[in-house]
């Protein structure tokens, strides 16, 4: 970590190393360009959502949010996330345990398979579930016979959400668990702990922040997913609309202010996610730094341990 010796505008962060310092005009132009780009592409879109949401004042804002169809969309989004995130949590823990604590053939292939949903278009993933469970789908007749609906209903939305958020938690946990190694777990075993006790008392506490980080990202994506859910939900107002679908519907109805009001909920979710994420990163960094330097280590390091 470069030492911060000055907060002077545009100063190189690793001051005192003159050879790696760029001329002031270069720094000025680069920072200016970067700030300009960040303003247009990052800051303005965010501010715009919030400003447009309140463009007609507080009352229409509340009006848009308390609309029964919007409330039902919020409810559906919460339910879908409440089902899919825990399932992904179980999967993420199982996958990272197997992948990071054991050696087996085909490990990197397995990781690639877990990554697949990242690179598949959400629309294509939605389509896959229609082909599986839709009326014309592979299991369509079977589901119809048992009067069980997946597509254009909650189960379909959950499945599509599961698919698009599938890699999130596993991908966060695998590198952390790999870095922790297996010695602490083995130490627990030599002390008589069984698998569950080892996992619960040793493994889980050491990855808890990373796990929370993964859950937060997974949740943000689960609540905000648009493409895949849009394909499987059927867009039945008041029934199978999630918040993002509700935004689209309001927008298509030329109700821009209401669309922005509902969208501001998701923007706030994104901001909360970023805030939590940043806090967790600082927490993880702090823990890491603490583990490296031991500020409270007593001075009598080289003293022989005396016994009575």
């Amino acid at each position: 970590m470069p030492v911060k010796t000055s907060t002077h505008f545009g100063k190189a962060r690793s001051a005192s190393r003159r050879a790696v310092e760029d001329p002031a005009w270069v720094r000025f132009i680069l920072i200016g360009l970067a700030l300009g780009f960040a303003t247009v592409f990052l800051l303005l879109p965010l501010v715009n959502v919030l400003v447009q949401a309140f463009s007609k004042g507080l009352k229409p804002f509340w009006g848009a949010l308390s609309d029964p169809d919007t409330l039902s969309a919020i409810r559906l989004t919460l339910i879908a996330a409440a089902i899919s995130v825990p399932i992904n949590l179980v999967f993420g823990i199982a996958a990272s345990w197997a992948i990071s604590k054991f050696e087996f053939r085909g490990k990197s292939f397995l990781i690639t398979l877990i990554d697949l949903p990242f690179s598949i278009s959400p629309v294509v993933s939605g389509l896959m579930f229609i082909l599986l469970f839709g009326a014309q789908g592979l299991f369509g007749p079977l589901l119809e016979a048992h009067d069980f609906q997946i597509i254009f209903a909650l189960p379909g939305i959950v499945l599509a959400t599961l698919f698009v958020t599938f890699p999130f938690i596993a991908r966060e946990l695998i590198p952390i668990m790999q870095a922790e190694g297996v010695e602490q777990e083995q130490a627990a075993l030599t002390l008589g702990a069984n698998g569950w006790q080892t996992f619960w008392h040793v493994t889980l506490p050491s990855v808890k922040w990373g796990l929370l980080y993964g859950v937060i990202l997974c949740n943000a994506r689960a609540m905000g997913e648009f493409g895949a859910v849009s394909v499987v939900s059927g867009n039945i107002t008041g029934l199978t609309d999630t918040i993002p679908l509700r935004v689209e519907k309001l927008y298509n109805e030329y109700n821009g202010q209401a669309a922005f009001a509902v969208a501001s909920l998701l923007a706030l979710l994104a901001l909360a996610t970023l805030a939590l994420k940043t806090a967790l990163e600082m927490k993880i960094e702090h823990d890491h730094a603490q583990a490296l330097t031991s500020p409270h280590a007593p001075a009598h390091e080289h003293q022989a341990p005396e016994r009575q």
Binding site: Q186, A187, T190, G192, V202, P205
Partner: peptide, 21 residues
């Protein structure tokens, strides 16, 4: 006999202390 049942005490090279305890 599993490691848990052997009643041995093992000290790892880097100690493997439980960081969270």
């Amino acid at each position: 006999l599993s490691v848990q049942k052997r009643n041995i005490g093992f000290v790892f090279q880097n100690y493997a202390l439980f960081k969270n305890m």
